[in-house]
Nucleic acid binder design. Structure first.
Lengths: 219, 219
DNA sequence: TCTAGTTAGTATATTATTACTACTAACTTC
DNA sequence: GAAGTTAGTAGTAATAATATACTAACTAGA
C-alpha cells in the first residue's frame, strides 16, 4: 500500500445492499423492492444505499434499514462483500451486503411508514426455478440463505426472529425454517433449556392446549 | 440506490488487506510487514493492495498474495470488510480483508523471491499484551483468529495448512493450534477416518517410530 | 356435557460421540 | 541392546444426540 497515491486513480463506488429477513406463516421471507428503472427494470432487487464519506459501513446499513422499514435498533450483521467488475452494468460498484433479522410483528407495525414500496418475498419461492432477479442479487440471497442455515447451528441468531416473549413451538418453527428440516420437540426443548427462562404467562384462545411464554436468559 | 448519481459524490478508496496464515513449530504464524513510512512507521502491519478498476476483489487478493509470497493457487477466502471512517488517518479507505492458508513448506520455498520484506510473526505473541499494530489491524487479526478457531470445527480448512501428504500427528497439531486446545489422539483419528486415505508411504529418519503418510480423500 | 380434533409438553429408550486410560509398536542414539 | 521418544490401537465410562411413545389442556361442535 506504500508508494501509491490513491487520489490519482479512479475509485469504485461503494454501496450497502440489505437483506432484511423475517419469518411469517412458517416461511422465510425477505424484504425486496421492485426496480423502477433500467437496468433490470421491473425485476425484484435488494434494497441498497450508497456509503457516504461521513459514515461507517455499519452506519450505512442502519440508515438503509431505517429507510426501508422505519425501524431502528434491530439486529444486523455484515454478510459478505461483492466486487465483480460488471455486477452493475452502469459502473463499478462494490457492494457490502448486510443481513438484518426482525420479528414479523415489528415489520408489519411499521409498514405504512416505509419510504419506498418494499414487500416481503418468500425466499424459497424466489430462489426456486430460474426466476430473474436484478444484478447479482440471486447470488447474494443464496449466500445469505446458506449463512443463515449455518449460523443457526452454532449461534443464537434465531432469537432475533421472535419477539421478547415467545413460546417454544414458535421458536422451534424458526429453527426448523432456517435449517430446512423438522426437529424433535423433546430434544429441541432440552437444548434450549439453558438459553431461556420461563415466564408466568401462557397463550390462550386457541383450540388446543395453551403454550407457556418464555424469554431469553441474560447470562 | 435509485435517484442517485454516484459519479457526483466523493468516493472512498477500496483496498484488500491480506492475512496469510501458516503453522510453524506448533505455532500459528501470520505474514506481516514492517511499515516504512508514516503513519505507524516502524510498526507491524498487514500487507495490503488497492483494488484496481479492472479486477474483482478475489483477483486483487490473488495478486496481493502473489506479490507478498510469490505463490499462486493457494487457498484464500474473504474475511470481513472494515469501513471505519478514520481507520487510515490519511484518507477514507475501506478495506476488504482476505485470509489465506498455506503450508509452511511452500512459504519457505519462495522466501527469496518476495517483493517486500514480509516476515512471519507468531500470532499469539502479536496479540498478547498491548503491543502496537498499525491501523485497525489488531482488530482484523483478532477477528481472523476467532474465525479460524470457529471454522476449523465445521469445515475442512485445516487441510490447507498441511501439504498434499501429511501424517496424522501433523494434522492433529494443526487442529490443536487452531482450536487452542489439546485433542485426544484416538478420537481425533476416528473423526478424520472418513476424510483421509492411507498412502503406502511412511516418514523416516526420526528417532522414533515412523508415521504413515495420508492424503485427503476426494469424495 | 361429552367427544373429537388439535397442539403442548414429558418420559424414556437407543445410539453416537466425547473424555479418558492404558497399553503395544517401531524407530534412533548412545 | 537398553533408553528415549513418538506412532498407533484397544477399550471403557460419561455425556450428548436421536428417536419413539406417551400424557395434558384447550376449543368446537354434536
Amino acid at each position: 500500500m506504500e508508494q501509491y497515491d490513491a487520489s490519482k486513480y479512479e475509485k469504485p463506488s461503494v454501496a450497502v445492499d440489505l437483506l432484511v429477513f423475517t419469518i411469517e406463516d412458517r416461511r422465510l421471507k425477505l424484504l425486496m423492492i421492485e426496480r423502477e428503472e433500467e437496468p433490470f427494470c421491473g425485476m425484484p432487487a435488494l434494497p441498497g444505499v450508497f456509503v457516504r464519506m461521513d459514515e461507517t459501513l455499519d452506519e450505512t446499513a442502519e440508515r438503509g434499514i431505517a429507510e426501508e422499514t422505519g425501524l431502528s435498533g434491530i439486529y444486523f450483521e455484515q454478510l459478505y462483500t461483492f466486487g465483480d467488475i460488471h455486477r452493475d452494468p452502469r459502473m463499478r460498484i462494490i457492494s457490502v451486503a448486510y443481513m438484518a433479522l426482525v420479528p414479523v410483528e415489528k415489520l408489519a407495525y411499521k409498514a405504512g411508514e416505509r419510504v419506498r414500496t418494499a414487500y416481503l418475498e418468500d425466499v424459497e419461492d424466489l430462489l426456486a426455478g430460474d426466476k430473474e432477479i436484478a444484478f447479482d442479487h440471486r447470488k447474494i440471497i443464496e449466500y445469505a440463505r446458506w449463512r443463515l442455515a449455518n449460523k443457526v447451528e452454532y449461534t443464537d441468531i434465531a432469537f432475533h426472529l421472535v419477539g421478547k416473549l415467545f413460546t417454544l413451538p414458535e421458536l422451534q418453527i424458526v429453527y426448523e425454517v432456517l435449517l430446512g428440516k423438522e426437529l424433535y420437540k423433546a430434544n429441541f426443548r432440552k437444548k434450549m433449556a439453558d438459553l431461556i427462562e420461563e415466564t408466568e404467562y401462557m397463550t390462550s384462545g386457541e383450540a388446543h392446549r395453551p403454550s407457556r411464554l418464555y424469554r431469553r436468559k441474560e447470562s
